[in-house]
Amino acid sequence: MAEQRSGTVVDPTAVEEIVRFHGHMCPGLAMGIRAAEIALREVGPHSSDEEVVALTETDMCGVDAIQYLTGCTFGKGNLIHLDYGKNAYTFVRRSDGKAVRVSTQPGAFDRSPEHNELSTKVREGSATDEERTRYKELRANRVEAILLAPEEELHAVEELEDAQIPSMARIHNSVACAGCGELTMETRVRRLEGKKLCLACFERER
């Protein structure tokens, strides 16, 4: 495994592009940037097709940084969401099976009591203009701290032996749902009383 680093090595211009892609900068996105650069170092480079697969155990902001920097996307089938509610990612290189799991260190995402209090007020719409300004300041400081922190303070990196490599993305035939008439991937169709139904219609009619 390559030597861990202190501070992000992602080019500032790339960071700006990631922010535009995601819509805003926040601590979650910064954590995703730091996780993605580990992936690029350990199993990269950027995946133009399906050379690298990312399995993400969260759907938080950081996943957008993973998509942008690694080239692993839902549309290509090499970004797989495992709904475990963990800030953790597994990256697998298809060519030789090398795989690493990157998980957030306990405490790496902790915020100060003031930050937590202001976050609640902002979310509930009760924050004053002064409190909103202070909240933005604290969030910006947290982002900067994440981007500059030693890697080992943010993430644990584990090289996996004999990792199971997900199968390549497949294109399946579509069939018309007997309920709504919309085309549905045949592997997602359910049968009810002889009818082929999409999942939404199946749930309504059963």
Score class of each variant (00 low, 15 high):
1 M>G: 09
6 S>L: 03
7 G>L: 04
9 V>K: 07
9 V>F: 05
10 V>S: 00
10 V>F: 00
13 T>E: 12
16 E>H: 02
17 E>G: 00
20 R>Q: 07
20 R>W: 02
27 P>S: 07
28 G>R: 10
31 M>S: 09
31 M>Y: 11
34 R>M: 12
38 I>T: 10
39 A>K: 03
41 R>S: 14
42 E>Q: 09
44 G>A: 12
44 G>M: 11
45 P>D: 13
45 P>G: 14
48 S>Q: 13
58 T>L: 12
60 M>L: 13
65 A>P: 13
67 Q>N: 08
70 T>I: 12
71 G>Y: 09
71 G>V: 08
72 C>R: 14
72 C>T: 11
73 T>A: 08
76 K>G: 06
77 G>F: 10
77 G>Y: 10
78 N>G: 06
81 H>N: 08
82 L>S: 10
83 D>Q: 11
84 Y>F: 14
84 Y>G: 03
84 Y>W: 09
85 G>A: 04
87 N>A: 14
87 N>S: 13
88 A>K: 10
89 Y>S: 04
90 T>A: 04
90 T>G: 01
93 R>I: 00
94 R>I: 00
95 S>H: 01
95 S>V: 06
96 D>N: 13
96 D>L: 04
97 G>Y: 03
98 K>S: 07
100 V>S: 01
101 R>V: 02
102 V>Y: 01
104 T>V: 10
107 G>T: 05
109 F>C: 05
110 D>M: 07
112 S>W: 08
112 S>G: 06
113 P>V: 06
115 H>G: 04
116 N>M: 13
117 E>V: 07
117 E>G: 05
120 T>P: 00
121 K>N: 10
125 G>F: 13
125 G>P: 10
126 S>V: 15
126 S>C: 07
128 T>V: 10
129 D>G: 15
130 E>L: 11
133 T>H: 11
135 Y>H: 15
135 Y>V: 06
137 E>V: 07
142 R>E: 15
144 E>R: 12
144 E>V: 05
147 L>H: 05
148 L>H: 12
148 L>S: 14
149 A>Q: 04
150 P>A: 10
151 E>D: 10
153 E>V: 04
154 L>K: 02
155 H>I: 11
155 H>A: 06
157 V>P: 04
157 V>E: 02
159 E>L: 06
159 E>R: 12
161 E>Q: 09
168 M>T: 09
168 M>K: 15
171 I>R: 08
172 H>G: 01
174 S>L: 07
175 V>I: 03
177 C>E: 00
179 G>Q: 01
179 G>M: 01
180 C>A: 05
183 L>W: 03
185 M>V: 01
186 E>P: 00
189 V>C: 01
193 E>P: 01
201 C>N: 04
201 C>D: 08
205 E>D: 06
206 R>S: 04
